[in-house]
Write a protein that binds this DNA or RNA. Structure first.
Length: 426
RNA sequence: GUGGCUGUAGCUCACCAGGUAGAGCACCGGAUUGUGGCUCCGGAGGUAGCGGGUUCGAGACCCGUCAGCCACCCCA
């Protein structure tokens, strides 16, 4: 016998957690729909080159975190590490961005990293992408939508919006040169990782966690001083829109983000409640990406939500959801069981919203009632010899203290209708 | 990829100078003939992550490996 375990970093979402997931997904769908966003479903595998070109050749994701393999035709494939690249690919392939287009998708993403709290090798994201609008009203809408989602999920209070403008590619190129010049003069004062990043990805030094490096950055040139007028103006406008929406934010001049395709406005929603991986949502504008993929130049912006982190956050806030049974059907013996069959079947058709659990496997009344209790059902429907003989059913309250009663089959529907009305009112 | 901590019944953990394992919860059954939750009684369940070494003897010591957790890196 062999004992299999889930592959490292791949996590089973167990039945005790799925009700919370489902309620989160339901709320997300409602919010997205209410803003007019349409769902798109995308493959989990894409050509490796797609990610290398969009995310950036020298990013950690592409350099060391991708699940890549050659298929039988010897072409390099990759399990998607994020969703934007595939979404943009689909938009270009099907020419979806002829008019402004609002899209969302959800599903698993894969990154080969060492697992820790809030980080898995297979995790789930909700991605929201908007194509065709260059003005910051689009960025404002995306941020407003995300905030609406936090409110509806009850996590609004523990999330803060950090926001920045990283300007155009040429702004950043200029700034990068200035930053490298400044930091190179103080090379020895930098932490080891930042020294390495001086060559590979200098902008990422900005959000180093090393205190000495951060101190050094206080006197460093500021990215905001290198932005062109357009980026600056649009950022100001966006902040004004956020004020109008009543969304508090923290302008974080050192927020850069790791993927190459971002420009202008970038933002993150972060929390203190999750340990080191506090980013629940991150996004920004990526005006150049559609063109890179061979589409006609199309402005675009979007964000991604880490769903495991969102769930973790809800759990930390003790937000719980469960869906216990409503009815548990008990039958005395084989004959009684057969008697219940068509009746329970009818109930399910008449009351599709009721959770009706039929006892299986026989056993004494005692053991059946034990199961009924554990199911969380509000009522047990009992079919014994007497009930069957008289076309009746006994109702026993398992949660409240209502007295047990026996009613005719014909009265059951009315009883259940009342029960449903009550539980919906509660 | 780096570092720290951990790995004993389904879960949470204990035992032990190294002499082949226990508790609580959960589970199953019972406590007068068709009735759960409380209580009582009983039962089932572990080749102590895996491999190797030291030893007369290892779950306990050593090495390796795998996995989990947390942090770094990076990101959702």
């Amino acid at each position: 016998m062999t004992n299999f375990r889930a592959i490292r970093g791949m996590v089973d979402i167990l039945p005790e957690a799925t009700p919370l997931w489902q309620s989160m997904e339901t709320v997300a769908l409602e919010v997205l729909s209410s803003y007019g966003y349409e769902e798109i479903r995308l493959p989990v595998i894409e050509s490796t080159g797609l990610f290398a070109r969009s995310i950036g050749e020298v990013t950690d994701i592409v350099e060391k975190e991708m699940y890549s393999f050659n298929d039988r035709n010897d072409e390099s494939m990759t399990l998607r590490p994020e969703g934007t690249a595939g979404c943009v690919r689909a938009v270009v392939q099907h020419n979806l961005a002829t008019t402004p287009r609002r899209l969302w998708y959800t599903g698993p993403m894969f990154r080969y990293e060492r697992p820790q709290k809030g980080r898995q090798r297979q995790f789930h994201q909700l991605g929201v992408e908007a194509f065709g609008v260059a003005t910051p009203d689009q960025d404002a809408e995306l941020i407003a939508l995300s905030r609406q989602l936090w409110r509806r999920l009850g996590v609004d209070d523990v999330l803060t919006l950090e926001i920045n403008s990283i300007g155009s590619a040429s702004d950043r190129a200029q700034y990068r040169a200035a930053l490298v010049e400044y930091l190179s003069a103080h090379r020895d004062a930098l932490d080891a990782d930042s020294q390495r990043r001086l060559e590979t990805n200098p902008l990422r030094i900005l959000d180093s966690k090393d205190p000495a490096t951060q101190a050094l950055l206080d006197a460093a040139p500021a990215l905001s001083d290198h932005l062109d007028a357009e980026s600056r103006d649009e950022f100001e406008q966006l902040l004004a829109y956020l004020d109008g929406l009543g969304i508090p934010y923290r302008v974080n001049p050192r927020l850069v983000r790791g993927l190459d395709y971002y420009n202008k406005c970038v933002f993150e929603w972060t929390t203190e409640a999750l340990g080191a991986q506090g980013t629940v949502c991150g996004g920004g504008r990526y005006d150049g990406l559609v063109e890179i993929f061979g589409g006609k130049a199309t402005p675009a912006a979007g964000f991604a939500v880490g769903l495991e982190r969102l769930i973790l956050l809800m759990q930390a806030l003790e937000i719980t959801v469960s869906s216990p049974a409503d009815l548990y059907v008990i039958a005395a013996d084989e004959a009684a069981y057969r008697h219940t069959l068509p009746r329970v079947d009818d109930l399910r058709r008449q009351f599709p919203d009721l959770h009706i659990v039929q006892h299986l496997g026989g056993g004494s009344f005692k053991s059946q009632f034990k199961r009924a209790d554990k199911s969380g059902a509000a009522w047990a429907l009992v079919y014994g010899e007497t009930e069957i003989a008289n076309n009746q059913v006994t109702l026993k309250a398992l949660r409240g203290d209502a007295a047990q009663r026996t009613i005719g089959d014909a009265e059951l529907a009315a009883f259940l209708a009342d029960f449903l009305a009550e539980t919906e009112g509660a």
